[in-house]
Design a protein around this nucleic acid. Structure first.
Length: 699
DNA sequence: CTTAGGG
DNA sequence: CCCTAAG
């Protein structure tokens, strides 16, 4: 139907009229070709092995000396390296095993945490961790640790007045709760650098993740599923994409970067989609969603969308499952949000189930485990003010909270700013990792979620004075912390959680944005913290002590007023929303360009979707818009002096073809207003031939 | 969803 | 690469 074959348009064969569509801009940026792809090593195997290793470790009861690193659950979020001490990790472990996905989930969690793109793997190498703190070079005055230039500065931030006494059952002494602030520091680094597999510190960094953390997040579910042997219904669909001959002339993208490899692995999936990949559609939808007001809710849904298990057979299958999960997750989160919203509006409406506490949602078996003894809980204390409103509603005004037992390590040379960020990150990590809320009355935890506030006495002013809310990070294995109606039970593992906790925002490179932790989980508390980021550090006393005692804790008691507690509207267009995961740049390789050129030569410049399907169907990261854009820049590139071109040089031959094709299609597009393309093609072909174009055929 | 174009 | 207005 369409052009069958067209070797090339002798660009000198026909005179191209002045290019109608002159290059719109002189931004040659599009042609910048960092050699990211080239320098990447396939970390897939590495990841896989790591996953395996983790699995092993989780299975080998031997919680041996080996590593706290592995035993300690890591609550996703900010730090990516923030570890929360668990009073007793055995139960945790046991549970993990029960879920059959302990290792994986932990693993994934790390990767899915903000900035994980930089440190995820680092977490796997405890030894390396120490190096993490050697980067900063300005420092927070510290008397003790001045000796070693790069000595870690362990600072315990304590609220002077609110001691750490109240912190129940703290696992003391452990130095695991540390947060490195370097992650942010590095955000400014060029991706290229990070993709080398080594970051500036010479630490091993997963190239894939560093290149595209999102993918990372996607990959892991796959891993998990593979390990867990999750069987999902097959979604394969042998529908051949026959409409358009593919890879004609063998012009298949010879992309050799790892991304591509990964993509290829996903092929089955890609192909499973009918002619039009449903996945893509979903992706868009999600993506749109993300960019819109809901981004805060499920910033990473896209990840799920894309996750395409590569190595296993069930790849496609699990993909679909995950996708499903994503959606449901989204729903659930929204629900959750509205609930929270209510809460933060200081209008806690008593419901029949009595649950304004998210705890009611988390009736998982582990519940007890995380109970009072959970050292990593954040205590809301004292300052709650509440009062009755006209309609028998109880309003809560939570004015402060504590984040106990948060050990932060930053190099002496770290800047105050980085410290702040680190703290924020740490706190965010807790809150972002999924949390539960506990209600304390008179210092006692109110466990019965079914009791009404009245019954509990929470409505009486006297009691309200002693009312407290505790934030408890959700144990890694615990399925979605906040969901009430969502049935996470469907999930084979904590995939859902993984999804939910991957609101990472791989941030764009900008000094400030670097500092910003990922989109905060939708928790009023988070918001609270967020909004008080500055206060956090400024109002807390920083006590540096290398011989930290058990009482160390990070107590953050910013002067939060009621107003600030108000939930930030989801649709609030904060600056950060702008940071919604911009896709990582993936400079077109020469082979890709070649494929593109070829496709355009055949299909013209107005059928990008076809181009995509024809030559880039396997390159999931190339959308037809990308191709179109690339063509745009290619044309521009071809028109400028070679000296002005940047990035990986495109062979002149290709550029010539670009110009030729561009001219050709520019010329013919106008004529091509008829309906029957075939006819048109014939005509144009004839015309072209007359102009010296050769080897043009049409069906 | 696709295209086309501007940013 | 993103965003959007138009089909």
């Amino acid at each position: 139907m369409v052009v069958k074959k067209r070797q090339y348009y002798g660009f000198n064969g026909f005179h191209m009229p002045p290019v109608p569509r002159a290059p719109r801009s002189a931004r040659g940026r599009g042609l910048n070709k960092m050699k990211v792809e080239d320098s990447q090593i396939c970390a897939f195997e590495l990841l896989a092995s790591l996953a395996g290793k983790l699995l092993q470790e989780s299975e080998s009861s031997a919680s041996s000396n080996a590593s706290e690193a592995n035993d300690q659950p890591i609550i996703g979020g900010g730090g990516g390296g923030v570890k929360f001490e668990q009073d007793d990790d055995r139960p945790l472990k046991a549970e993990c095993l029960d879920h059959g996905s302990c290792g994986e989930s932990a693993f994934f969690t790390r990767f899915s945490s903000p900035n994980s793109d930089q440190k995820c793997l680092l977490n796997e190498f405890p030894h390396a961790e120490s190096n993490l703190f050697l980067e900063r070079s300005s420092m927070i005055t510290n008397s003790n640790s001045s000796k070693n230039g790069g000595a870690d500065l362990k600072s315990v931030i304590c609220k002077s007045k609110s001691a750490c006494e109240n912190i129940p059952g703290k696992a003391e002494g452990s130095s695991d709760s540390r947060v490195s602030c370097d992650g942010y520091v590095d955000n400014g680094l060029s991706r290229q650098k990070r993709c080398d597999g080594l970051d500036t510190r010479g630490l091993i960094v997963d190239p894939c993740s560093s290149n595209d953390p999102m993918e990372m997040c996607m990959k892991f579910p796959a891993l998990i599923n593979s390990v867990s042997n999750v069987e999902l219904p097959s979604c394969r669909d042998p529908v051949p994409s026959a409409s358009i001959p593919r890879h004609r002339n063998g012009t298949k993208l010879g992309i050799r970067d790892d991304d591509e490899n990964f993509t290829r692995c996903n092929k089955p999936l890609t192909k499973s989609k009918a002619f039009r990949p449903p996945q893509r559609i979903g992706d868009r939808r999600i993506r749109k969603l993300l960019t819109s007001k809901y981004w805060k809710v499920a910033p990473k849904l896209k990840d799920c969308e894309f996750s395409k298990p590569a190595f296993l057979e069930g790849g496609a299958k699990s993909h679909y499952l995950k996708r499903k999960l994503c959606y449901s997750r989204e729903r659930y989160q929204l629900n959750t949000f509205s609930k929270r919203r209510k809460f933060t509006d200081h209008s806690v409406v008593l419901t029949s189930d009595g649950g304004f506490s998210s705890e009611s949602v988390c009736n998982s078996p582990d519940k007890n485990m995380t109970g009072d003894k959970n050292g990593a809980s954040i205590m809301f204390h004292g300052h709650q003010a509440s009062f009755h409103s006209k309609d028998s509603q109880v309003k809560f005004s939570i004015k402060s909270f504590r984040v106990p037992e948060l050990l932060i390590e930053v190099p002496e040379t770290a800047t105050v700013g980085s410290l702040k960020r680190t703290v924020v990150e740490a706190v965010s990590a807790i809150l972002g990792g999924g949390l539960r809320v506990g209600v304390l009355l008179h210092g006692k935890k109110v466990r019965d979620d079914n009791r009404t506030l009245l019954q509990t006495g929470i409505t009486s002013n006297e009691n309200l004075d002693t009312l407290g809310f505790s934030l408890e990070p959700t144990p890694v294995q615990v399925s979605p912390p906040l969901c009430t109606e969502d049935p996470p039970a469907l999930l084979p593992c904590d995939t859902s959680q993984l999804i939910s906790r991957s609101p990472t925002t791989p941030i764009v490179d900008s000094g400030i944005s670097d500092a910003l932790p990922d989109p905060p989980p939708l928790t009023n508390l988070d918001t609270n913290i967020e909004s008080n980021r500055e206060s956090v550090s400024s109002h807390a006393d920083i006590v540096t002590d290398n011989t930290l005692s058990d009482s160390r804790a990070l107590v953050v008691v910013p002067p939060v007023n009621t107003e600030e507690l108000a939930m930030v509207p989801l649709n609030q267009k904060s600056k950060r929303s702008e940071l919604v995961q911009r896709r990582t740049r993936r400079p077109f390789s020469v082979s890709e360009v070649e494929a593109l050129v070829h496709a355009v030569e055949e299909l013209g410049t107005g059928r990008w979707r076809d181009v995509k399907l024809c030559s880039f169907e396997d390159a999931d990261h190339r959308t037809y818009v990308d191709l179109k854009d690339k063509w745009k820049t290619l044309v521009h590139t071809a028109q400028i002096a070679p000296q002005q071109r940047r990035g990986e040089p495109v062979p002149q031959e290709l550029l010539d073809r670009v110009l030729a094709a561009h001219a050709y299609w520019s010329q013919h597009q106008a004529k091509q207003h008829s309906k029957n393309q075939t006819a048109i093609l014939k005509i144009t072909d004839a015309h072209a031939v007359g102009n010296g174009v050769e080897d043009i055929q049409s069906i």
